[in-house]
């Protein structure tokens, strides 16, 4: 490594974060899990779609044999090929968020456990920059993982002729991954936030997991009245009627600004062309804002962080 001039502290921290993630094997584990999950989703989507197409052919044959003259056109023609990726929405919504939490959590806890936090904070870079560097590093890693998922899905659509995508659909798929990335940054940031904020390692890991449960289960349940398991089916989600009653409508009104799990799902359903609704600009703003607020909270938490409190605790 040639370093003949002063490297910017931000770049140094980002590079360090990435190197550590790679060395620990965390990055390859993540990439492996996400690629496998993508392949699996494609396989499920493809086999279901091709079976459904075969069932259509069988249905046509059966109806013709029964003497039916007017046979409805294949209803799948109205469903975009992109819908085969629909399971990825749930995988990202749930496990993607959990994995992002682990990365954020480890990022600070690793430094704390190896005793370098006081050392790092005594460097001229300053606390906000330290957090910014960590968040950038984590997000670059997540972006690479998301890119990996995109490449895996793009390759699978190229190699399976039945899954051919048009140019527009390709862009839409890319937009889906971009939104997924924004969604994950929020969880990485709260993983880091609680890692900084709580000196008890167990609570520091559990707290963001509880936030995750609130965002992807409790808030949607309170505003839709759906049971937790029904919240796991993207097709049901896209077409579920809103629950009626004063309780649910007021819950919706109060909780909607915080329901970015639902914001993500809505955007993902839109980009994968499962949901017929229009593009919701508010949802993407809410998602991005959540990530930024969580990141800013990390800086605030580190300002309050006291190295001696850590030793006393």
């Amino acid at each position: 490594m040639n370093s003949s001039r002063v490297a910017s502290p931000l770049r140094t921290i980002v590079a360090h974060e990435l190197r550590t993630l790679r060395r620990e094997g965390t990055f390859s584990t993540l990439l492996g899990i996400f690629s496998a999950v993508t392949l699996f989703a494609v396989f499920i989507g493809w086999s279901t779609r091709s079976t459904t197409l075969a069932i259509y052919a069988a249905t046509v044959a059966t109806l013709k044999a029964a003497g039916v003259s007017h046979i409805a056109p294949n209803p799948l023609l109205g469903v975009s090929t992109l819908a085969i990726f629909n399971n990825l929405i749930i995988y990202t919504l749930l496990v993607g968020a959990l994995l992002a939490i682990v990365i954020g959590h480890r990022s600070f806890v690793r430094d704390r456990k190896s005793g370098v936090v006081p050392l790092l904070l005594s460097r001229p870079a300053g606390r906000p920059l330290y957090i910014a560097g960590k968040l950038c590093g984590i997000n670059v890693a997540l972006l690479l993982v998301i890119l990996g998922m995109f490449v895996v899905s793009a390759l699978s659509t190229l190699f399976i002729p039945a899954l051919h995508l048009s140019g527009g659909e390709f862009l839409s798929l890319a937009a889906f991954y971009a939104v997924s990335f924004v969604y994950l940054t929020f969880f990485a940031a709260i993983g880091l936030l609680f890692g900084v904020y709580m000196s008890n390692e167990s609570l520091a890991l559990l707290a963001p997991v509880l936030v995750w449960i609130a965002v992807v289960f409790i808030l949607p349940e309170l505003s839709t009245g759906q049971n937790p398991v029904s919240l796991l089916n993207p097709v049901t989600l896209a077409h579920a009627p809103a629950a009626s009653g004063a309780f649910f409508s007021s819950a919706r009104a109060i909780l909607s600004p915080f329901s970015f799990g639902q914001d993500y799902t809505a955007l993902a359903l839109h980009f994968l062309r499962i949901s017929p609704g229009p593009f919701d600009i508010g949802a993407i703003l809410a998602l991005a804002a959540a990530g930024v607020v969580a990141g800013a909270a990390c800086v605030f938490a580190l300002q309050k962080y006291s190295t001696t409190a850590d030793q006393i605790a």
Partner: peptide, 28 residues
């Protein structure tokens, strides 16, 4: 990470497969 991934497989993906892979569910 692996524990969470296996949780994903055994708690979310596989039990939901009856639903997600049901041909009748593929069309609204």
């Amino acid at each position: 990470l692996l524990s969470f991934a296996l949780w994903l497989v055994f708690v979310l993906i596989i039990p939901q497969i009856g639903d997600t892979m049901d041909p009748d569910n593929q069309v609204p």
